[in-house]
Design a protein around this nucleic acid. Structure first.
Length: 404
RNA sequence: GUAGGCGUAGUUCAGUUGGUAGAGCACCUGUUUGUGGCACAGGUUGUCGCGGGUUCGAGCCCCGUCGCCUACCCCA
């Protein structure tokens, strides 16, 4: 028997229904916010992710499904969605249309070569949105609102954490400040953090190590070092969230794992799904389009992890639906096909090809959760009728086939 | 990469100091020559993950290996 690869899952029955329900719900809501679908390749040139996600990130450093294709190209299965969408945006020269706004949603598989555990797979699926050309913090707020709408529609509770990561004006001085602070206590910081001082000092902030966390209590906070523009933008975001009664908490240690974020960063978390608690995350990335050779274009986006919210979704009740059609003797089977075709115009139909006793047909109808069980038995076959039972109302009747 | 837990029927699991494998659910049949879900009765289902070792004898003990789960790291 050949099994799926480690960290890759098949979805069937209830699970695949949950999956589809999440995606269709998210699509419906993002369309109402003006987003349209973008499909981009799963395979991209490796350097796209090196440049966008960032060399210092773990994703690029050790988690990429990277290989050389038969043409000798260094390629990579996408570990996240934003980079490909931005590449597509630039390639289509949408960055030249500076006064226009573009909003795209996408969904599909992402790949990271990690050790699987609860809520973390090697192939997982994200639904995401990217909004280009709108630099206003109103858009940051609108996206957070939209995610809230999606979770509400799915019946999912969450906590919202927000932070500001600053901009090219205020981030570098803060970064220097932080490096100085970290160097002063580097002997007490863990091994990983010592490495991060050189590679990505900001990420020391969300180290899980307890000694590190206690040392960091006195560290300089970016939120109090923001430039005027970033600070007023963050205040505006907070004010909008308050006025719409969206509860949030400011987490000064919230650092997105990807290098391209600036200003607003947010994460939706759930405490019901184990240690991998982030169910959606995103933020603003005003510099990424130029990083990828486009004209400067502000942008903000998010992604939600479909597998992580699958076990949180409250599914609508499933009700009996459609028809189960069968016959009790071999000779009547052929006559069922026109009936099935007619009903399939409007209803779900399950057609049984083997003759069976009535009891077996009724059980078959239960099994496929049909509302009606329609059977041609010996008598019905003789006089051109069909017996139909409503399995919910428990009413039955025999009608001419032409009336079916 | 590291650590812990677990691999027995389709599924969830039990299996005593080692003595040749069991239960619930599911499935099939019947009670009902044409009335489902409920009830009752009966029945089918196994490479005990794989390989080796110890033993008269291994699901159980030992060694190895593969797989799954959880956690660290990181993130959706």
């Amino acid at each position: 028997m050949i099994n799926a690869l480690r960290g890759m899952k098949d979805l069937t029955f209830e699970e695949s229904e949950r999956f589809v329900h999440i995606v269709t719900t998210a699509i419906g809501i993002s369309k109402k916010y003006g987003y349209s679908y973008i499909e981009t390749p799963i395979l991209e040139e490796t350097k796209l992710f090196r440049r966008s996600v960032g060399e210092s990130s773990d994703i690029v450093g050790k988690e990429m499904y990277q290989f050389e294709d038969k043409g000798g190209n260094d390629v990579c299965m996408r570990p996240e969605g934003t980079a490909g969408v931005v590449r597509a945006f630039v390639q289509a020269k949408l960055d030249r249309r500076q006064n226009e706004k573009f909003k795209f949603y996408y969904y599909g598989p992402m790949f990271r070569y990690e050790r699987p555990q609860k809520g973390r797979l090697r192939e997982f699926h994200q639904f995401g949105c990217e909004s280009f050309g709108e630099g206003s913090v109103y858009e940051d707020f609108t996206i957070i609102q939209m995610i809230g709408d999606i979770f509400r529609a799915l019946g999912i509770g969450y906590d919202l954490q927000i932070n500001s990561l600053g901009c090219p004006e205020c981030m570098p001085p803060y970064r220097e400040n932080l490096i100085n602070f970290l160097n002063d206590c580097k002997d007490e910081l863990c091994e990983d953090c010592n490495r991060r001082i050189g590679t990505n000092p900001i990420r020391v902030l969300d180290c899980k190590n307890k000694t590190c966390q206690s040392l960091l209590a006195d560290s300089p906070k970016l939120i109090t070092s923001l430039c005027d523009g970033c600070e007023s933008g963050f205040e505006k975001l907070v004010q909008l969230l308050k006025s719409e009664n969206i509860s949030y908490e400011v987490d000064t240690n919230l650092v997105r794992g990807l290098d391209y974020y600036s200003k607003t960063a947010f994460e939706f978390v759930s405490n019901e799904i184990g240690s991998q608690s982030a169910i959606a995350g995103g933020g603003r990335y005003d510099k990424l389009v130029e990083f990828l050779d486009g004209k400067p274009t502000p942008a903000v986006g998010f992604a939600l992890g479909i597998e992580r919210i699958m076990e949180l979704v409250v599914m609508p009740n499933i009700e009996r639906e459609g028809y189960y059609i069968g016959a009790m003797e071999e000779g009547a089977i052929d006559s069922l096909f026109p009936l099935a075709s007619k009903k399939r115009v409007t209803d779900k139909v399950t057609l049984e090809y083997s003759p069976k006793k009535l009891k077996a047909h009724l059980k078959g109808a239960d099994r496929v959760n049909a509302r009606y069980c329609a059977v041609v038995g010996e008598d019905e076959f003789k006089d051109g009728t069909i017996w139909v039972k409503d399995l919910v109302e428990k009413q039955e009747f025999t009608i001419n086939k032409s009336e079916f």
